[in-house]
Structures are given as structure tokens and as C-alpha cells.
Design a protein around this nucleic acid. Sequence first.
DNA 1: GGCAAATTACTCGGATAGGACATGTCCGAGTTCGGCAGG
DNA 2: CCTGCCGAACTCGGACATGTCCTATCCGAGTAATTTGCC
Lengths: 165, 165
Amino acid sequence: MKLGSGVEWSIHCLALLGALPPGRSLRLEKLAEFHNLKVAYLRKHFQALSKAGLVATVTGPQGGYRLGRSSDKISLLDIYIALEGDDHCFRCTEIRQDGPCANPALDKPSYSIPCNIAVSMWKAEDAWRKELAKVSIADVLGATAKQVSSEKMERMAQWLTEALA
Amino acid sequence: MKLGSGVEWSIHCLALLGALPPGRSLRLEKLAEFHNLKVAYLRKHFQALSKAGLVATVTGPQGGYRLGRSSDKISLLDIYIALEGDDHCFRCTEIRQDGPCANPALDKPSYSIPCNIAVSMWKAEDAWRKELAKVSIADVLGATAKQVSSEKMERMAQWLTEALA
DNA sequence: GGCAAATTACTCGGATAGGACATGTCCGAGTTCGGCAGG
DNA sequence: CCTGCCGAACTCGGACATGTCCTATCCGAGTAATTTGCC
């Protein structure tokens, strides 16, 4: 169970977008430059983010991306779902209903109850999702602000100013 | 983030092994037959389970697999780790240390603190793992016994007797 | 000088190759059981 | 009849193809700013 690199990239990029002055947008090229990421590949991920409404696009010159809604309304779970889908990571194929001992017709009452193995797996997955849902881009920004030196904050502000120019 | 089919297969198979009479083992072919699974592919998964010590092998005629330790000492997490490795599903590549605004030398104090994004992701993963660690093969067996009809339990016992003969 | 339309330049979106991992399959190494010969 | 040895059969383990999804890239569609010509 591995998460694609798009999740990490997107969280960082959305955090940067969250730090933008209200109403402003940032080009993808600049977004990639800030984190030294592959532009073309990052673009692909932003297609998904755009479809999910997490980012809004501004087309044409001076265009770019901005957050689709306020940073405290975008959770890490939202980002994950936008990029990797909302399917369960554990897929129950109901193999209990197969094999020489199973009889779907006869055992139907039992099979109307979900497979207890799947239930346990899904319960764990729910715990995971709940944790992710707790954390928003605003939270990420707040935490980052606390742990980053004021010098770097200054450098970032400077860079942003030039990028938006 | 998708789990391989081996996880589902293995849990079901280990549950079956847990239902074996003490000291007995079951051939892989029979294990696959019980759930109507591809024998050759299931074999591959059992190699991993064997390496992790979750199952013990009995070679030669009348050989097969049995649980490596008591069913209440084998958790779903153990199975997952054995099959898919114990790496974090979220991989932090420390992209915060890259880019025009980052200065690894100058910002070293900040970078000694883990990236807060990674922390949030890992926290969620820990919640997931904790849930999986709670559930053992013995628990699965207990839950199954509760929800399966006595007729099917009888059929299974019958089949097992023949398979062990 | 002001205004409007065509042009230009710039941005994102989707279609398109390449590579890594999960999936699926097969044959060889090792061990136990059964048979057989000898005592 | 018992014992020891030998052969054969059976089991798992690892090496080998295949498919699918993530990774990576490029070119076209659409839009806003700019320029230019006209009033």
C-alpha cells in the first residue's frame, strides 16, 4: 500500500497556494519551481485537483491556480481522494461465497451480513481517513509557520512577490 | 492506495489454518481449493508468510502449512506487513529542503524537526495500523463462527476431514 | 485622445509513451513415506 | 519377523513471463492582455 508522489507534491503546493494574497493565482511553472518539481508531471496531478474542485483555474496570461475554497475547508483526505480515488483500499471479493463449502443460495442469510474480515479492514481504513480529515491546509500552514525560521519566511515572501509580479 | 489481493487471500487462508486440529497441516492445493483461488499465485503469497514466520511449513508427503504461532498472536497488521512490507505508505521526500527559498545549510535547525505534513500523514497511518493490530486471526475465527450457519459449519468440518485424510 | 476589433502570447487540459510493481505461471530442491532385501 | 536401506512420490521454494497502474512528457484548445487602426 503505497501512496503516489502526487499526494506529497499536492499538499505542499496547496499549502503554498493557501499562502497567496486573496484573489491572486500562481502559475504551475512557478509552483513547480518553488519545490523543484517536474512541471509536466505536476500538471497531471493538478488536473485531478481541478476536477475535484480543490483548485480553481484562471486561464490566459497572468492566470494560474488558486485554492477552490478556503484553506480550512480543504483536508488532507480531500486531496487524497481527489488524486487516488475514493475506493476502499481493501477490496473484498467475497471469496467466502466461493469454494466447495459455500452455497450462495443456501447461505444467503449469512452473506447478507458483511464479511467480518472486510469489516475489520474497513474499520481501520475509516480510522485512517478520520485522522486525515482532521487536518486542513490551514492547519498545515499554521504548523509550518511555527517551525520555519523568520529568515526563511522572509525569503519565501520575497520570492512570492517576484513570482506574482 | 490499494492493497494487493494477497492480503485478502492470506487472511482467509490463515483463518482456515487456525481452524485446523492442533498439530495438523494443510496442503496449499487444498487451501486454494477451499476458496477457489489460483494455486500458483497463492503459493507466492505463502512464501512471504512463511518468511515472516506467520506460517510454518511441513515438507514431504502429508506435509503442508500450519500457523507459525497461536492464532491470537497473529494480527491483521502482521499479515499486511509480511505481504506488503513495513515501509510507510506516505513517503516524505523532504521537498521542503529544495527549491529557491530553501537553504539546507542555513535552515538546518528547522529541518531537524520532521516535516509537519509527513507527521500528519504518519499519524493517520499509525491509527490505521493500530486498528489492524487489534484484530487477530482468532478474532476473525470467532466472528465467523458467530455469523455462519451451523449447516455451513458442518459442511466445512466435513470437507476438512476429507482434506486431511 | 478614446474605443473597438484583431492579434498575440500565455495558460491550462487532455492524449500519448515509458517504467516499475503487482499479477500469474512453471520447474527444481528437499523431505518423508513406502517397499524391499537382508539378517 | 524385525531392521536398515533404497527408491519414488510428494511438498514447498524460488526463478521466470505478463498485465496493469504509476510515472513522465508533449502538443493542442481556450482565454486575457496587447497592439493597432479607426473615429
